[in-house]
Write a protein that binds this DNA or RNA. Structure first.
Lengths: 210, 210
DNA sequence: TTAAAAATAACCTGATAAGGGGGAGTTGCT
DNA sequence: AGCAACTCCCCCTTATCAGGTTATTTTTAA
């Protein structure tokens, strides 16, 4: 089988032992080829574009610029490559920043070798590989708090406010009077114990009421 | 091994052939037990609470109330159960509504039997099982448009506006003058060709600029 | 079927924010 | 040197916001 049909992989990981482990794993798996391995983004930046990888395994804790901050820069250098985050961190802020910055998948480092290989394959096939806990956190981010003190209408109105619409416009679009919208907002503020749009939106989002 | 240690599964699926297929698959897998199977939510509603399932497989296209609309009702009846959507539909609106309504996972019907079993196991272990394409769509929903016409500062300010903050408050929090914020907003409106907060937020969100 | 909760609407006051016009200086990066 | 980005200043008018209080109708659930 020609080497040109292999999936080309780059690795950016500062721990030499781990990095060499990945190089060994991927290099010895038929259908996969390691075309570059670097201990930092700064090292990778010079050569990675000419490596022309299909998939990049990226650590988040790197010396110098972090993996997450490096993400957009890597995407500029190799726009067609899929970037898989491979890290020990499972903090939601990191996960969402990584995904927002263009990561195509997010794996934790306890992922067994065969799963890393299948994740590389999966991302090439249009998937979005994630470790189980990560996927749960991502799904949870879509979910509402069922114990919201807000009624359905209040929730609806607060959502409209969160889109920047004025009370008058909300009233028109919901076919109710401006005074009614104002009443609802007053009730929302009382329930959430706030005194402004911004605080209501923040409280509601923090508590997943909207 | 005691049956009480098995994972208890309910199935809500209108197609009898498919439903019986799942019943057979799960019922004949060691460690899993089917405690209920129903062709609609209306049928399930009466008995599902006493079935006390750990996991519920839910179809989206059901006669009567749809699976997605049934989700919150099922959660009320069986708050502790994990609900896995099992459907042919891969439309983003359906996916995000399902996840927002409390689904713990989302599988397409071409999922091979062993993957369905492992998804049930995975959700019990704190995972969020999704089919590959679904996971990709979910991840994509976090990502920004790299071709935004807005500068970094403009993007930052529009994000602040989208939280409901006033221009004055934004100015204070960014340590810049109110006039500067106003200038940025004017530029944002020109670039996006809008004349209000609400329209700017909508355009920016539609195009993933924020 | 009846009580409670939710949704609706009105009146009031004062303060502030929003949108749009123009111009202009200062960085920082090629 | 030139450009993009960021910063700040002045003008103007209109619309919106936050808060108080009360009250009716409609829905929902016990």
């Amino acid at each position: 089988m020609s080497r040109d049909l292999d999936i080309h992989v780059c690795i950016i990981e500062d721990d030499e032992t781990i990095r060499e482990g990945y190089v060994y794993l991927i290099g010895n798996t038929p259908g996969y080829k390691v075309v570059g391995s670097y201990p930092s983004f700064e090292d990778a930046a010079k050569k990675i574009a000419s490596d022309n990888p299909d998939v990049i395994l990226l650590d988040v804790e790197l010396p110098g610029i972090s993996g997450i901050d490096a993400l957009p820069k890597i995407k500029k250098l190799v726009p067609e490559a899929y970037i898989l985050i491979l890290t020990v961190y499972e903090q939601d802020i990191l996960i969402f920043r990584a995904l927002g910055n263009g990561a195509a998948g997010y794996l934790t480092k306890n992922t067994p070798p065969e799963k890393i290989i299948s994740a590389i394959h999966e991302v090439m096939e249009g998937g979005g590989p994630m470790s189980a806990h990560i996927a749960r956190m991502v799904i949870s981010s879509f979910q509402r708090n069922e114990a919201s003190p807000l009624t359905r209408r209040e929730t609806e109105i607060l959502e409209q406010i969160a889109t920047g619409k004025s009370r008058k416009r909300i009233a028109q679009e919901l076919f109710i009077d401006l005074e009614t919208v104002k009443s609802h907002i007053k009730n929302i503020y009382h329930k959430l114990n706030v005194h402004s749009k911004a605080d209501a939106i923040k409280t509601a989002k923090d508590n997943k009421f909207i």
